[in-house]
Amino acid sequence: MRKWKRIQTADGPRFRSSLAAHEAVLLQNLVTSLLGMLEERESSAPTDELHAITGIRTGNPQPPQDDTLRRLLPDFYRPATEHPAGSGTAESLNSALRGLHEPEIIDAKRDAAQRLLGTLPDGGGKFELTESDAQAWAASVNDVRLALGTMLDIRPDGPHRLSQEHPMAGHLDVYQWLTVLQEYLVLGLMGK
Rank of each mutant, 00 (worst) to 15 (best):
M1L: 12
R6W: 01
I7T: 08
T9K: 07
F15W: 02
R16G: 07
L19K: 05
L27K: 05
L27R: 06
N29S: 15
L30E: 12
V31R: 09
G36Y: 13
M37Y: 14
R41F: 13
S44H: 09
A45H: 10
T47I: 07
E49T: 13
E49V: 12
H51W: 08
H51I: 09
A52S: 14
A52K: 11
A52Y: 02
P61K: 05
L73V: 08
L73G: 12
D75A: 15
R78E: 13
G88L: 07
E91N: 03
N94I: 05
L100M: 09
H101C: 04
E102F: 01
P103A: 03
A108Q: 09
K109E: 05
K109F: 06
R110W: 00
A113N: 02
T119N: 00
T119W: 00
T119Y: 02
G123A: 14
F127Y: 06
E128L: 06
A134D: 03
L146V: 14
A147Y: 05
L148E: 07
M151S: 04
D153T: 02
R155N: 05
R155V: 08
P156D: 06
G158I: 03
P167Q: 06
P167F: 01
H171C: 01
V180E: 09
V180S: 09
E183R: 04
L185N: 03
L187I: 03
K192Y: 02
